Amino acid sequence: MLEIKAIDTYYGNIQALYGVDITVNEGEIITLVGANGAGKSTTLMSICGVTQPRNGRIFFQGRDITRTPAEEIVSLGICQVPEGRLIFPGLTVTENLDMGAFLRNDKDGIKKDMQRVFELFPILEQRRRQAGGTLSGGEQQMLAIGRALMARPKLLLLDEPSMGLAPLVVKQIFEIVKQINKEQGTTIFLVEQNANLALKTGHRGYVMENGVITLADDCEKLLADESVKKAYLGL
């Protein structure tokens, strides 16, 4: 579904990614793990067109999207849940979800998808008339995921969904991520600093250090890798 081929991404004159190669197959949960500042978020920003690579190519379903504007990438079926959630704090839960469906005009489909979001996250239905900024951190993360799902993504990019959340909330959100993948068939690219949790959630994984992919394998094998255990799992 997604092919990242030898991309170099810069912020001004500072290089953040070095020849990154990643493949995502349809129906998979792919995880990208690494320390803070390794280049994980930059990888997602490169995919969704916010920070376009200087070199290399990105293909989505066979189409070169390397220089495609971000809004057009969303219309192709790629949607990102950004680090820090970035919901619209002054809008209600329902209005936030409506914003996720901004590019759609199928009213019946939008209504059905919103109900599906409420089934996945029942607390959001209870809070549907509440301003997004008044929700707890966990509820805002649920809202950010729900907003992305309203775009009906073929590929869902999740950037640090566990950040700043209590362990029980994190467990609940990751169970729902697996449910979205299994029941809806949504392909997921998960970027996560919590390597243990990410590798237990995904099918295949990549390890990034200083903008370079250093390891790639099935998540089960990465969990058993001694270098991964030492560097990221505290074992």
Rank of each mutant, 00 (worst) to 15 (best):
V74A: 10
F59S: 07
L120E: 03
G56C: 12
V20T: 07
L190K: 05
E119R: 13
S136G: 07
N181Y: 12
E183N: 09
E28Y: 06
V212G: 03
N196V: 12
M163S: 12
K111W: 09
E175F: 05
L157S: 02
Q141P: 14
V212Y: 07
L158T: 12
F121M: 02
D108A: 13
K178N: 15
T68S: 07
G138S: 06
L155R: 00
N210Q: 15
N36Q: 07
G90I: 11
K230Y: 03
P82E: 13
E119W: 13
R127I: 10
P89V: 13
I176R: 08
D21E: 09
V207M: 03
A166E: 04
G146K: 00
T214V: 14
Y11L: 10
N105I: 13
V228E: 03
S46H: 11
N194K: 12
P161E: 04
L86S: 08
G234T: 09
R127H: 08
G138C: 08
I145T: 06
V177C: 05
M1Y: 05
G49K: 02
G146L: 00
K40H: 10
P69A: 06
N196C: 11
S41D: 14
R128Y: 10
P89R: 12
E83L: 02
R128W: 09
G56Y: 11
L190P: 07
G146Q: 01
E3D: 15
N181D: 12
L149W: 10
I4M: 04
A16M: 06
V207Q: 03
L165I: 00
R85W: 04
A195S: 15
N36L: 03
N194Q: 13
R67D: 15
Q184F: 15
V20C: 02
L103P: 01
P122L: 09
R152P: 00
R85I: 05
